[in-house]
């Protein structure tokens, strides 16, 4: 009872993503990454969608360049979260560097979900650091387990990948521009898979985001955490 709700919620979100990180650890090691590489990915990249996508592209036979491009296109949104959070996080340079590293979907979302602006920074740190701790613990656990599991297909782990991506997309699908982007991206992939090398359809799908942007029209339809605050 002693822990305020906005702090506790952040830690709970961290624990939930930690469970997902176990899946990442298993997937990465069963697709040929070492335990060390898998753990360093979670420590340094620390962006779930990018990590899963990079491993997925490699697993499908894509090149390293395609994997890096896909992961970075997915990570670009964190830059926009950073702009929103830069108004909230004040103080020393090291503090802001750490804040930048833990600026992700969960920490930005939890901060901006607070109706009381005074609680936003606390919520940001609780979710950001909570996810960081559990994400890396979960990854290590999964990586060690994955070494033992062996063939991922026997356990259906290859299907857990795309299903997990659907779960990650759910918030975006609730808005018309996000739904359009997903539909266009999926259609582009379906058409280009037989025509290109593995991984390339994912890069081409970024055109789907541009299509959605043009079709969906005015930007105020696109609700972001920042818009909710102003």
């Amino acid at each position: 009872m002693g822990v305020p709700a906005h702090i506790r919620d952040g830690i709970v979100v961290g624990f939930a993503t930690g469970v997902f990180a176990v899946g990442f650890g298993v997937l990465a090691t069963t697709n040929g990454l070492s335990v060390a590489q898998t753990s360093v990915m979670s420590l340094l990249i620390f962006t779930g969608a990018s990590q899963f996508a990079a491993v997925g592209v490699i697993a499908a036979g894509g090149s390293a360049g395609t994997a890096v491009s896909t992961a970075l296109l997915l990570a670009a949104r964190n830059g926009f979260y950073g702009i929103t959070m830069s108004r909230l996080i004040r103080g020393s340079l090291p503090k802001r560097i750490v804040a930048a590293h833990v600026t992700i979907d969960e920490s930005t979302g939890m901060a901006m979900a607070q109706t009381d602006p005074a609680k936003r920074e606390g919520a940001f740190w609780a979710a950001g650091l909570g996810v960081f701790v559990f994400w890396n613990l979960g990854t290590l656990l999964g990586a060690l387990a994955g070494d033992v599991i062996g063939d991922p297909e026997r356990w259906g782990i290859d299907a857990a990948f795309p299903a997990g991506f659907i779960a990650l997309m759910v918030p975006a699908l609730k808005q018309r521009p996000g739904l359009l982007a997903a539909a266009a991206g999926g259609a582009i992939a379906l058409v280009t898979i037989p025509l290109t090398r593995p991984g390339v359809p994912i890069i081409l799908a970024s055109i789907g985001a541009v299509i959605a942007l043009v079709v969906a029209g005015p930007l105020d339809e696109l609700s972001t955490p920042e818009d909710d605050a102003s």
Binding site: A159, F165, I166, A181, I188, I193, P201, S206, L222
Partner: peptide, 29 residues
């Protein structure tokens, strides 16, 4: 536009990943 594009890239790319990892192996459907 830049911000909106940053927000729309994830659903577009994730959807393409879902399609490719569900109904393809290499370059075959």
């Amino acid at each position: 536009w830049g911000r909106a594009l940053g927000m729309l890239l994830p659903p577009a790319l994730l959807s393409a990943l879902v399609v490719s990892q569900t109904v393809s192996t290499g370059s075959n459907l």
